[in-house]
Simulated scan of single mutants.
Amino acid sequence: MTSPGRDRLRELLDAVLDEDNRSLADMAGDAYASPFHFSRQVSGGAGESPVALRRRVVLERAAWQLRHGAPVTEVAFAAGYESVEGFSRAFARAYGRNPSSAAPGGKRDADWLPAPNGIHFHPPSSLWVSDEPVRRGGDEVTALLVHHGVEDTRGLLELAKGLPDEEYRRVRAAGLSVLPWDGAEETLAAVLDHLVWSLEVWVASLEGADTPDHGPDDAAALLDRHDAVAPRWLAAVRDVARRGAWNDRLVDALCDPPESFVLGSVVAHVLTYSAHRRQLARHWLREAGVAVDAGDPIEWLSRRDR
C-alpha cells in the first residue's frame, strides 16, 4: 500500500524504467504488485502498457545519447538490446532513420516520440510529463516578478561587493535555515549564495543539464554566476509561458528519491524564496551600514519606465 504523501505515479514509472527491470515481472515485483495488477495500473494511469512505455522512453534516451556523440554499440547495449542489429531495427521503426544518422543539436523535445500520456525522456536522467498547453492568464505578472527578481538580486550583489569580508561573512542569525534541505543561512554571504545557487540548480533541471558545480561565494564571483544564469532562467520561464506549459510536470531523477514537479510550482517556489532571501539580505545590508531601497516592484517598474 502507498503511504500518505507518496507519489504513486513516480513509483510506477520508477519500476517501469529501472535499469534492472527488463521484464514485466521485474517491474511488477519492484512495485510490490502482481504483473496483472501492475499492468492495469500503468495502462490505466498512463494509457500505455508498461513494456511499450519503457521501450519508447528508452529509445528517446538513446536518441539523445546518439545526438551527443555516444557510439551506437554503447547506446544499444545501454538500452537493453542484445545486439546492435536489433537496436537499429527498433530505432529505425520508431524514428524512420538509422541511429548512425542522428544529428547533433536540437531542442529538448527533438527526440520525443508520439505518446498518449505526455511522458518523455528528459536528459540527462529524468522524465518530463507534458500537459496540453492551457492558458491560465497572469503571464504578464509572472514575467514582471521574474524580471524584478533577477534585477533586484543583481543590485543587492553590487551593494555587497563594497562590504568588508568580516561584515559580509558575519553571523547575523545563528541557526537560521530558510529551507531545511539548504542548510544554515546565518550570514549575508550564505543568503546571497543561495539566491544564485537556487537558480543554477533549477535552470539545470529545466534544461536537462547535469547538476552544476557550486562556485565561489564572494560577492564578485556571485555576480558573475548570476549574470551567467539569469538569462537562462528568463528564457526558461518565457518558454513555459509561450507554450502555456504551466501544468507540465518534470519528474526529476536528480533528486533522492526522484520527485515530480509542476512547472508552475517551480516558478512559484523560486519567486517565493527569492523574495524572502532578498528581504533578509536588505535587512543585513542595513545592519552593515549600507543604504538600500525597499525592493518594491512598483518602484522598480517606475524607475524602468522613466
Rank of each mutant, 00 (worst) to 15 (best):
D18F: 11
A291H: 11
G175T: 05
P258C: 07
E60T: 07
T142P: 01
R97H: 14
F261L: 10
G118N: 07
V129D: 09
E166L: 07
S274H: 15
S39Q: 10
G149K: 05
D14Y: 13
D239F: 09
V134G: 00
L285A: 03
P257N: 09
A190I: 03
V129N: 09
A31V: 11
L263M: 13
I298K: 14
T187K: 01
H148F: 15
E151M: 09
D139C: 03
E140T: 06
A220D: 12
P258T: 08
R61E: 07
A33K: 13
N247D: 14
I298Q: 13
A110M: 05
F36S: 09
G175F: 09
H37P: 01
F261R: 09
H120A: 04
A78P: 00
H283S: 15
R303P: 04
H147Q: 13
S43L: 13
V251P: 01
H147E: 12
D248W: 13
R97C: 06
L206R: 01
S130D: 00
L113M: 08
V267F: 02
E158Q: 14
V58F: 05
E158P: 04
L24A: 01
T153M: 11
G44E: 03
R93C: 04
L156C: 06
E132K: 00
S101Q: 10
G106W: 14
E151L: 11
E74Y: 01
V141G: 02
Y81D: 00
F87I: 03
P123S: 11
A78L: 06
D296L: 12
R56I: 06
A46C: 14
L144V: 14
V203Y: 09
P216R: 09
A236I: 03
M27P: 01
S265K: 10
R40N: 08
A291T: 13
